[in-house]
């Protein structure tokens, strides 16, 4: 397998793979070339709706289509889905219409446009909506597979994809990938690292280095933030000294928030959240951004060691 891939490509491939379903409709808001819905448009222009630079309209057009039995997949940048938040809240989530939203270029590991394009709160806001499924897969294959499962998912969803190529984690058609089920990529008994998106590969890297230091770290790809795989989190909390959550997202309300909410009520556990600490990013290379925001491999390692060293 090739070593590097961008999760947004997986979305593009999934749309093509689902094209046999005549009810599939793809919506774009002038960013199809970026979200990769352009591949579908090229082959199926009659089932691709251009909404221009108008995200609010796009989300509700999708809702109208879903209300008439179609399966709309609407994409734009993660940050611009947020412009239509109330349309998504009132027009999609509230009537529980199966509209599938893909927000690409999520997080700070993206281009050099700067903070205006770095969504660090998308996962939090969509998690807060009843009826919504929220996912953030880590590579192209898992994005493709999980997106394809949305075709028969009878409630709305938000999937964040990333712009940049990062190490590929899965083989094609991995049987472990199910919506709502985290994947244990590496077992470990000292500390468990629960990650999503581009931070999964960083977490694997961190686990390798921890192993060299004599620390046995588990790594989980928690591609679905909602519904959270609580039984897996429980299992990890039971088997390890503590948990580190890792995300290219605010520590408020995303993966770290979800895990903290669950653990504090159901199984109090030592927890460290690696994520953006309530601030905005800026222009810079993706890897520089992770360092600036203290969400790099080094930060994952430090958090894990912090737990292991606790008396």
């Amino acid at each position: 397998m090739s070593d590097f891939a961008a999760s947004r490509d997986g979305y593009g491939h999934a749309l093509i793979s689902m094209s046999e379903d005549p009810k599939l409709v793809v919506l774009e808001a002038d960013l199809g070339k970026s979200t990769k819905s352009c591949w579908f448009r090229e082959k199926f222009p009659e089932r691709t709706i251009s909404c221009g630079i108008g995200e609010q309209n796009m989300m509700l057009v999708a809702a109208g289509l879903a209300s008439s039995g179609y399966k709309p997949f609407a994409s734009t940048f993660a940050i611009f889905t947020e412009r239509a938040f109330e349309q998504i809240r009132n027009g999609i989530a509230r009537p529980n219409l199966p509209v599938h939203i893909c927000g690409s270029h999520g997080g700070t590991h993206t281009g050099t446009d700067g903070s205006s394009a770095q969504s660090i709160e998308d996962l939090a806001i969509y998690r807060a909506l009843p009826n919504m499924t929220v996912m953030h897969p880590c590579d192209d294959y898992s994005t493709q597979q999980l997106t394809m499962k949305l075709l028969n998912h009878n409630s709305p969803s938000y999937t964040r994809t990333a712009r940049n190529k990062t190490p590929r984690i899965y083989e094609i058609n991995d049987p472990r990938l199910e919506i709502g089920k985290g994947v244990l990529l590496k077992s470990g008994s000292d500390v468990a690292i629960i990650a999503c998106g581009v931070m999964v590969s960083k977490s694997i890297e961190a686990a390798k280095k921890l192993s060299e230091m004599g620390v046995d770290a588990a790594v989980v790809d928690m591609h679905t933030l909602k519904p959270l795989d609580e039984s897996l989190v429980y299992e990890l909390a039971s088997g390890c000294k503590g948990i580190v959550t890792v995300e290219d997202h605010s520590v408020i309300g995303g993966l770290g928030g979800a895990v903290a909410e669950y653990l504090s009520e159901s199984k109090p556990t030592i927890l460290r959240r690696v994520g953006v600490r309530d601030r905005f990013g800026e222009s810079g290379q993706a890897e520089e951004m992770l360092e600036l925001l203290s969400i790099s491999t080094k930060d994952i390692i430090e958090s894990a060691l912090d737990i292991v060293k606790m008396e």
Partner: peptide
Amino acid sequence: FSAGSLGMGLSFGLGCSFAAKF
């Protein structure tokens, strides 16, 4: 259509119109 927040119905109607065309 579940309404209540103004300015949303026309866009939703577009979706219904597209569906009829399809």
